[in-house]
Design a binder for these strands. Structure first.
Length: 122
RNA sequence: CGAGUUGGCUGGGCAGUCGCCUUACCACUUACUUUUACUCUAAUCGGCGAUCACUGCAAUCGGCUUUUGCAGUGAUCGCUCAUCAUGCGCCGUAAAUGCGACAGGAUAAGGACUAUUAGCAAGGAUGAUUGGGUAAAGGUAAGUGGUACGGAGGAAAGUCCGGGCUCCAUAGGACAGAGUGCCAGGUAACCCCUGGGGGGCGCGAGCCUACGGAAAGUGCAGCAGAAAGUAUACCGCCGAUCGAUCAUAAGGGGCUACCCCUUUGGUAGGAGGUAAGGGUGAAAUGGUGCGGUAAGAGCGCACCGCACGGGUGGCAACAUUCCGUGGCAAGGUAAACCCCGCUCGGAGCAAGACCAAAUAGGAAUCCAUUGGCGUGGUCCGCGCCGGAUUCGGGUAGGUUGCUUGAGGUAUGUGGUGACGCAUACCCUAGAUGAAUGACUGUCCACGACAGAACCCGGCUUAUAGGCCAACUCGAAAU
RNA sequence: GCGCCCGUAGCUCAAUCGGAUAGAGCAUCGGCCUUCUAAGCCGAGGGUUGCAGGUUCGAUUCCUGCCGGGCGCG
């Protein structure tokens, strides 16, 4: 049974964590409106952090919406022992897309990312 | 019914599943800590003792050697060391005490015994500090799981004003600077609000209004126009008064087909008069009429307007169909400089406070007590005493501030109103990479603008709609 | 959380302490030149001066409020 909670252990909180992911990034997946960067974290679960700049998404309501949608999607994943830290970078125009579209796009990118990290291992 | 004005309220509802944050409670785990019990004995400082070595002194009239004693230094070993006290007769051990009963039995009575007792007092190598382990109980923190309550806005936004709060002096004086500007009131305060006045717009309900001073001074006004701030005069009008000229109508005179003088009328002109008319401009020094004049003109008069003084009404701004005076100026611009009145100390929750951690508080240069820093534009004042710059190095983790407040709701009451007062009840986000979402079903008007970050009062801006109240205009009907 | 600056032609910039038609270079278009192109020469078009109000006779300029962009301090 997969637990669907979203506690703080599954988030990136400190500036240090973010810096580490940028320094040791091993896989990327991107689309027109967002970019995922992943780095191994040595835990038995993935963690996620958001970088949604005010410059890219002006309104606070939209920034909150994107975070909520993606957190919700991330929460519902059966990630298994995918032990990577992932950073989501928002690009311009995300706020123009509907929540459903963002959700689908993020799911696709996540699948891509999992494939790529496996490829790296081999 | 249509069109409109003003003010106020609301800002999708319901059900289910999963998830996030705060708080409270319960259970478990981990860490820390306190107390108690048991247990182990490590370190530092100090002290004591023994042995050995060295040095000095004495025992001895002197020297040497030896011995003994004392003192000092050093080394080694040991004790202090395992607990809320133990232990100290003698022996032993390297090492440590004095006093001392009552009652009682026995006895004639007492001693002895009881008794190294009880008790008292002093001393000390026995001192001071830091520890480890196990168990139990309690507390704190973190995490996990569970239950329950609560969980963004009317603008949370822009950061345009005003305050609270915190630190710097208790926020003080002067200048500079900034803001503000009809009057009265409300308020903690305001560039806010309410009521009133003046001006402008609208048929109206209503709306807008930086609305002090131009007689303190300085500046500015292109083009056009004669002239743009000083009063002047371009085209005009007049030319009474001046001479020239024409006519000769009237009168007079003379040398009588002509001439002269005066008057009258005309023409051109000049000195001059004038500001009615024309034209320019955003703006040209009251308007209309009559009189008047050479033509005109506030030159005079009437009415209107204006200014000043007084009265009256109003707290005041101001108003005035009241009275009087003045023929009538002193143009505009102060969101140009400026003057006047009033207001304003600076910084901001990354304020500030506490805990923990870290460090060597380093090097160079410059300035220096008429100085530097706090302190901000300057000076004074106040407080503190080295300061500034560069280079190098270290730390930038947590708690608090943090939500009970100029708070809300209801009722009553004072006031035209903003708002005030009284009583009762209520507690309503507090995150910190930042919490309200997702999915499903269903209903309808098919859901706009938009997310708290120390807190309030306003302003401004954005906003799908829906609801309520008051009022205005128009139409129809009664 | 504070503080400051800038928005003018497609682009880069001017415009005197408010004065009339908002100008220059590059770019665009047309013509000349050249066999053709480039360069050069001549000419033309292109502006709601970020938006909305206000002050003023008159606003790119002054004031107020919005919108957008940039910079600095902690």
């Amino acid at each position: 049974m997969v637990r669907l909670g979203f506690p703080k252990q599954k988030r990136l909180l400190k500036a240090r964590d973010f810096q580490r992911v940028f320094d040791r990034s091993s896989a990327k997946a991107s689309s027109r409106v967002m970019l995922l960067i992943a780095a191994p974290n040595g835990l038995n679960q993935p963690r996620i952090g958001f970088i949604i700049a005010k410059k890219q998404v002006r309104l606070a309501v939209q920034r909150n919406r994107i975070k909520r949608v993606i957190r919700e999607t991330f929460r519902s994943f059966d990630s298994g022992d995918f032990s990577y830290d992932v950073i989501l970078l928002a690009r311009k125009g995300v706020d123009q897309q509907s929540s459903r579209k963002i959700r689908i796009e993020f799911e696709n990118l996540w699948q891509k990312l999992m494939l790529r990290t496996k490829g790296n291992k081999n």
